[in-house]
């Protein structure tokens, strides 16, 4: 297995605040990786650095053995890294299907100026987009304005339109945040399915420990912008530094009761 996405010694400061301080992460191809850490530990900043929304002060981002540090977001996306946002960012005044087409058109560039005005190439995009909407279960809403979707539906739409461009790695920023339990399970299922059937690589930030532990093969823990530890969920769960920094005594106490079903879920896959 090869490392598909990797960061080395990323630092990023906002004024006096050191958001990232040597953050390192490595995501193996075809795996689901997790990124956890307390609030303000730099998870989203690391996502922003990887996807080109922020330029790091120092350090390198490698994607498929190619440095992509400081590339513009559209170039990073074209290279094959898709992402969702913590607060979902959809295009509220476009319809759901139009949201999907925005991402779809990134893949095939029109051959000439006139093709920009055409819509001929859209039929197969439209069909693919509808399939993906059905995959996440919101195809009935294809022609409504995306702004009228509920929060959970927006999360699904965001996932779908990242998928439409068929990226190699998908970065998910809190896919389960603020979403009802039924939907959380559905999102987890979809991620698992994409991983198993199409070999998609995922990197996800999440505070829902059950979700992360059940889904991810490797987990990286960030604290104060630096990587504390990285490894399989079992290792993370029992790591003293992680317990002190993030998971805290709560999960320690829960370990006897709540951790068991989580483990089952994990091994059950």
């Amino acid at each position: 297995m090869t490392t598909l996405l990797r960061t080395e010694g990323i630092t990023k400061a906002y004024g006096g605040v050191q958001a990232l301080n040597g953050a390192e992460i490595a995501v193996e191809e075809g795996t689901i990786a997790g990124l956890i850490g307390p609030n303000g530990s730099g998870k989203t900043t690391l996502f922003n650095v990887i996807t080109g929304y922020e330029r790091p002060d120092a350090g390198e981002v490698w994607f498929a053995d190619r440095p992509i540090t400081g590339l513009a977001p559209d170039k990073v996306f074209a290279a094959g890294i898709g992402r969702t946002f913590q607060l979902t960012r959809i295009f509220p005044r476009l319809t759901v299907i139009e949201n999907m087409l925005i991402a779809a058109q990134a893949k095939d560039r029109p051959r000439n100026m006139l093709a920009w005005f055409g819509r001929d190439a859209w039929t197969h995009h439209r069909r693919h987009a509808m399939e993906l909407l059905a995959f996440v279960g919101i195809e009935r809403h294809a022609n409504v304005l995306a702004g009228s979707l509920s929060y959970g539906q927006r999360k699904l739409l965001e996932l779908a339109y990242v998928l439409v461009a068929d990226p190699a790695v998908i970065l998910l920023d809190e896919p389960a945040g603020g979403v009802n339990p039924t939907l959380i399970n559905m999102i987890a299922d979809r991620i698992r399915q994409l991983n198993a059937e199409q070999g998609k690589t995922f990197l996800l930030v999440e505070h829902n420990m059950e979700f992360v532990m059940g889904l991810c093969a490797t987990i990286t823990v960030l604290e104060s912008g630096a990587t504390v530890v990285s490894g399989a969920p079992d290792i993370i769960r029992s790591d003293k530094r992680v317990l002190d920094a993030y998971l805290g005594a709560d999960l320690d106490e829960d370990d006897g009761t709540a951790a068991e079903p989580v483990l089952n879920k994990e091994t059950g896959r």
Binding site: F77, F91, L94
Partner: peptide, 16 residues
Amino acid sequence: RAIRDDEDRARGLGVK
């Protein structure tokens, strides 16, 4: 129109 709604997001989806 995607730029109108959220320019940064549009860039993140490959819009130049």
